[in-house]
Amino acid sequence: MNVLTNAVLTTGPGTASRTSPISVDGHTMAPDRLLRYLQIKVHHLIQDHDWDSVHVVGGYDRQAVISAHEKNGKLFNSERPTAQVNGRDLVIKAFPGADYVHHYALIIATYLFMTGKAADTVTYDLPDPAVSREAVKQLDLDLDGDLVIVGWGLAHLAPPDGTWTYGHGYAWQRTQVHGRRVVYLGFLHSIWGDVAGRVVTRLAELGARDVVYVGKVGALNPDIEPNTRLATGNTSLVGGRLVTWPDFFGDFATAQPGVHTGIHVTSPSILLENRDWLTEHAGHAFVDPEIGPMGAAAHRAGIGFGYLHVISNNLARHYPADLSNERHRDVVQRRTVLIGQIRDIIADRLAARPI
């Protein structure tokens, strides 16, 4: 397979940038796995038709054409970017975050290249920060010192008999755990990268005292098998700078069996995590797009933040499980066990020292 240089131009809002596909042969995912990852992300109108241009913008528009590849059956994070047809041109509308728009443009361009289609038709336009802030301000909860648990796996973390109350692109329910008010908050759309940081800022404005993020990270240590361990920590490398936050878990989570800790790396897109990137960050522990922005936002707001994640894939060694086959039964079963461990650690943390 030919190697193309990633020539994405990162510019300001309102300026369209052309997106080139990544260098496929240099990526940490094997080409067949990478293609499968892209196929489950790319809107069906792109997979089924050819377009003169594909332009990715920030906009949460559920009235546009919904992708046939949305993750039906999931309680949260089920929605994909939507599409608007303008003759021979296609506009893709992703939730308005700079990292997400950039990431999705890379996904489309790389998919088109890998399937033998013209990839030079893909452009993107970063959303204005004011638009991103306004989109996140649709989140409106009555909080008063609550612990907010946000992210993935909430169907297994929240009380099974609880009722979800729906807002604009999100749902929540409240309970008490060892005397502490706890709110479980899930989003129907992705809160990728910088959007996740804005969510923490918004939760602090609404009165949250602590935020815990439950999700998935990639391991940079080749010895960690996916879906067998949990990750936590209080430091992330964000844009070349280390960011540390007041850790909700303190030393509690790291003392539990099967929980790894270390310095996290914030990456705006899985597509950018090639072998050169891995060499540069090999001394770190984990990678994902959200933890760093969330921790930085919590630090600025003066609230506690903690993450407790399933290690879902390994960038340094190829294992049978990776980001291309997350829906396989064995993967789901293993993650269900780990989610149960996350639930117990959070509860035990509150029982040991209510905050």
Rank of each mutant, 00 (worst) to 15 (best):
D251P: 09
V331K: 01
H156G: 05
D276P: 07
H69A: 02
I311T: 05
F248K: 07
L154Q: 06
A298S: 12
A208Q: 03
G215C: 05
G262P: 11
L206Q: 14
R198F: 05
T201H: 06
V200K: 13
K71C: 00
T232W: 01
D25A: 15
S269L: 06
S269G: 07
Q39F: 02
P96S: 03
H328E: 11
V148L: 10
F76E: 02
A98T: 14
I345E: 08
L147R: 04
Q333V: 13
T254I: 14
A316P: 13
T244D: 10
G250M: 09
R36F: 06
A68D: 13
H260R: 09
Y319N: 07
F249I: 04
F305G: 01
A282F: 04
L315S: 01
V85G: 10
N234F: 12
M29C: 04
H264V: 02
V214Y: 00
N314Q: 07
L271I: 13
D144N: 15
T123G: 05
L34K: 14
H299N: 08
D194W: 03
K117E: 07
V42A: 07
T5A: 15
L308M: 08
L157T: 02
N313Y: 08
H281C: 02
L38F: 03
G306M: 08
K41A: 13
F248N: 01
P268S: 02
D61Q: 10
N314I: 03
V57G: 05
H69R: 15
Q176S: 15
L9G: 01
Q173K: 08
V91Q: 13
D140R: 10
A83N: 12
D330E: 15
A208F: 07
A135V: 02
K216F: 10
D344S: 13
D276S: 15
D32Y: 05
A196M: 11
G162T: 10
F286K: 00
T266Q: 11
H309V: 00
H281W: 09
I66K: 13
V8T: 13
G87I: 06
T261N: 08
A7Q: 15
V122I: 12
H281T: 02
R174Y: 08
N314R: 03
V101P: 08
G167T: 03
S267K: 03
A118K: 06
A298H: 11
G306I: 04
H102D: 09
